[in-house]
Design a protein around this nucleic acid. Structure first.
Lengths: 118, 118
DNA sequence: CGCTCAGGGTACCCAGAGGTTCCCACGGGG
DNA sequence: CCCCGTGGGAACCTCTGGGTACCCTGAGCG
């Protein structure tokens, strides 16, 4: 219709759109990236990710979990010990996210400059 | 510290984080993708992108504009005629976004299944 | 016993994002 | 004469993202 390749992302009610919304989240990308190489505990992620609060991290992880990208393992005991890890599906996202984070690291300054100019 | 490669995305106040937040937006990815191959008018984007409202499209485009990813060209006249187009910086994002949309198209069903199961 | 501390999570509240509706400008066609 | 096509603005409403403060458990320790 407009000469764009299939990409049903443009359709409101399709799984692809849903999938985009899963990751189009301020924190989801950073959290997933934090789980890139191995499982981490809640508190590790808190230390790793600057500026995130406990509550928001929990929310984000829960959302990722119900979307099948992350598993939550409660080892019980006191103090609690909970580990989060990517699922197979979550790992398939690492390619795109790697590109995104690399882009961000390379072009962050340009974006900042545009903001200040604009 | 945690064995993760540099990735200063984890630092709260760095340009990379800012850049991630620019695109970690429900609509930004879809809108940018809609501008992938050539400039489009506001009304074209409305038709192309299912479920977006005029107001939100305008807001999203403005944000992308102030972040240096999109240009806005007003050709004047009545009815108005305005075209939006990717900047050079915006075009550098097409690689990552292509991967993201391809991932979404391939894995949307899996995410949906996880949601319904979880 | 009583105190604290660690780790993870939850109750409450507010600001802001997102959606809907209506309005404007104005040339052209029915 | 009325309405359409276009992009945008203003007003209004709802919903949820995020911050703060608090809770819970049991080990360790004096």
């Amino acid at each position: 219709m407009y000469g764009v390749e299939p990409g049903d992302i443009f359709l409101a009610d399709c799984p692809a759109r849903l999938a985009v919304e899963v990751i189009a989240d301020k924190w989801a990308v950073v959290v997933l990236w934090g789980l890139n190489d191995h499982a981490r505990r809640h508190s590790e992620l808190i230390d790793l990710i600057g500026g995130i609060s406990k509550k928001v991290l929990t929310q984000t992880l829960r959302r990722l979990q119900t979307n099948g990208l992350v598993t939550r393992t409660d080892h019980g005991g006191v103090p609690p010990r909970v580990e989060y890890e990517l699922t197979a599906l979550g790992r398939t996202l690492m390619g795109p996210i790697r590109m995104l984070t690399e882009w961000a690291e390379q072009n962050g300054d340009a974006v900042l400059a545009a903001q200040e100019a604009g």
